[in-house]
Design a protein around this nucleic acid. Structure first.
Length: 553
RNA sequence: GCCCCCGUAGCUCAGGGGAUAGAGCACAGGAUUCCUAAUCCUGGUGUCGCAGGUUCGAAUCCUGCCGGGGGCACCA
């Protein structure tokens, strides 16, 4: 709807210009907004205020040039100049009433956004190292990434999702070694875990699997001889656990991309050679350095250590190069906030390879604090003491967890109150929205039982929809495509959950005051159309959040 | 010391140049012969961390400061 208003104003602008009342090619950046106060109309624009300095006239005077043209538009029932020079626009009731019909007739068409214009986007998220189970922080990243991918898709982008697996390097050695020792322990050997080995209980579980599979085959092998075997079994087990957790969290990836493959296919080597050829890499103290400071990073970074091994950064450069070469117009990386130091260097790498760094958007997800009974729950990965995503799903459920994660901006620190998330009551916002959906399903079903159904929405007398609350709901429904586009543009899916909470609120208020089903068949049909439109919209919105829309509660 | 994020109602958080700053929770009271009371209605609170600046207009943008969190390896 906002887009239509925009276009209508632009049309009026051209007409004003034709009359010579203002220059045609003005570079102006005006806004169309929904005013907070109802008295200020359904939409308002600051066009005249923005134009004022350029035309050297008072804003109200400029506004009055546009009013006659806007008044002729069938879209509007009233145009007003207000305050310092806002143009307030009131939409004709018929337009709102039609929304109910449009949504029910073709929901896909109604919501379909086109700001993506088919651009290819790759959203990479979670990408937790396969050294242990996912914890609650990964859950936040998973909820954000998955929902963002859905929102981008809805806005007309061609989206794929990817999980990058760091399956090489020192941590793999430590992981394999940890399982190896626990394996030996199962045969009664006394062991001592080095400090940088993984301490968690899950390592013992993997050792048991190893024992079941191999028996005592490696009991007397030195670690060097069987390290790869232990790494493989550990990564295999941990990854399958991660996949299961994510699946139960409603998250599926298009691709799981292995760092190991990057090395095996020579892409890392090739990338470094290319940078070397470009003179972006130099040698110092026996190591190879990438001159990221040239591109805005605070200092240069090592890509190849003096001992000959490559750093993770080296793979990261190759990985991002490969991602861009795969033909994506836009890359979205979702990282934990503790990785923020990496943003500058990866962007530097992208730039030095000759790509536009604007293609790469890194979203940093801030920390999650868990609260229980008003107290902070201590978490420490090193001690193997943390709340896993699995525990969270089992405890509060996927829907509550995802919804709560998505009611916060990604860059704000999040206090996750377990007590509230557990409650199946009014305190828990997810039920508020789901309940609205269930209510609409129930109304539609009830109407059906009474033999009232809508064969063709075109035959429904929508002029019956004249209650203030009905118009309010229709206005809100009509703004959903704008909310989707806004969320996509700013990479902020949390707007969806606020939108849904508002919509549910409008419905619940209406529900308490009016009845959908009455003896007046024509009125009932018209209201049924609203019920269907709400149901469709909530279901669509919840789908974008990855939350279920139950028909019954 | 440097870098990133945050600071808005008692609590958790939206709003991120526009008109009188919002929601949920908490607290108190009320609503159910009728489509689900996981609901609704009524009641009040704000130095938008502080100080400057830009602007017709600042919670919003810029600078500095204060407070909280995180990060600053030839670790991953």
């Amino acid at each position: 709807m906002k887009k239509e208003i925009f276009n209508t104003i632009k049309k009026a602008f051209l007409k004003v210009a034709e009359k010579g009342l203002c220059p045609k090619n003005l570079d102006i950046n005006f806004q169309v907004s929904i005013p907070k106060q109802k008295e200020h109309g359904d939409f308002a624009t600051n066009l005249a205020l923005v134009l004022a300095p350029k035309l050297k006239k008072s804003p109200r005077e400029i506004a009055s040039l546009f009013v006659p043209f806007l008044e002729k538009e069938p879209l509007f029932s009233k145009i007003e100049i207000a305050g310092p020079g806002f143009i307030n626009m009131f939409i004709d009731t018929k337009i709102w009433q039609n929304v109910s019909k449009d949504i029910v007739l073709d929901p896909e068409k109604f919501y379909k956004g086109d700001i993506g214009k088919g651009q290819k986007v790759l959203v990479e998220f979670v990408s937790a190292n396969p050294t242990g189970p996912l914890h609650i922080g990964h859950g936040r990243g998973a909820a954000l990434g998955d929902s963002l991918a859905r929102v981008l898709k809805a806005a007309g982008f061609d989206v794929e999702t990817e999980y990058y697996i760091n399956d090489v390097g020192n941590q793999m050695k430590n992981l394999g070694g940890s399982v190896y020792l626990r394996y030996k322990e199962l045969f009664g050997e006394k062991i001592e875990l080095p400090k940088d080995y993984y301490q968690g209980e899950y390592i013992k579980d993997i050792a048991k699997i190893a024992k079941d599979r191999w028996g005592d085959k490696y009991l007397n092998s030195s670690l060097d001889n069987c390290l790869q075997e232990f790494i493989n079994i550990a990564v295999e087990e941990i990854l399958s656990g991660i996949k299961k957790d994510l699946e139960d969290f409603g998250v599926k990836f298009n691709t799981w991309f292995s760092e190991k493959i990057l090395h095996e296919t020579g892409l890392v080597k090739e990338t470094l050679e290319e940078l070397q050829k470009k003179g972006e890499i130099y040698e110092k103290d026996g190591a190879l350095w990438f001159c990221s400071s040239k591109y805005g990073d605070e200092k240069d970074r090592v890509v190849k250590k003096a001992d000959g091994s490559l750093t993770y950064f080296a793979s990261d450069i190759a990985y991002h190069r490969h991602k861009i070469d795969r033909g994506y117009d836009l890359l979205v990386d979702i990282w934990g906030a503790d990785h923020h130091g990496y943003v500058a260097r990866v962007k530097a790498a992208v730039k030095s390879l000759g790509y536009d760094p604007k293609k790469l958007n890194v979203l940093l997800v801030q920390l999650v604090n868990l609260l229980e009974q008003g107290k902070l729950k201590a978490m420490s990965t090193r001690a193997g003491q943390f709340v896993t995503l699995r525990e969270l799903i089992d405890d509060v459920g996927k829907d509550a967890a995802r919804f709560i994660f998505l009611t916060r901006r990604h860059d704000s620190h999040l206090d996750f109150d377990l007590d509230i998330a557990r409650k199946k009551s009014q305190e828990n916002p997810v039920y508020y929205v789901q309940y609205a959906h269930a209510r609409m399903c129930s109304v539609i079903k009830m109407a059906q039982e009474k033999g009232i159904t809508i064969e063709d929405p075109n035959n429904v007398d929508i002029t019956k929809l004249s209650q203030v609350e009905e118009i309010e709901i229709l206005k809100h429904l009509s703004s959903f495509p704008d909310v989707i586009e806004e969320s996509a543009k700013n990479l902020e899916p949390h707007h969806i959950s606020y939108y849904l909470t508002d919509l549910a609120g409008l419905l619940h208020t209406y529900y308490a005051k009016h009845r959908f089903i009455s003896d007046d068949i024509e009125l009932t049909k018209a209201r049924l159309l609203i019920a269907m439109a709400i149901k469709i919209t909530i279901a669509k919105g919840l789908e974008l959040l990855g939350v279920n829309a139950p028909e019954k509660m």
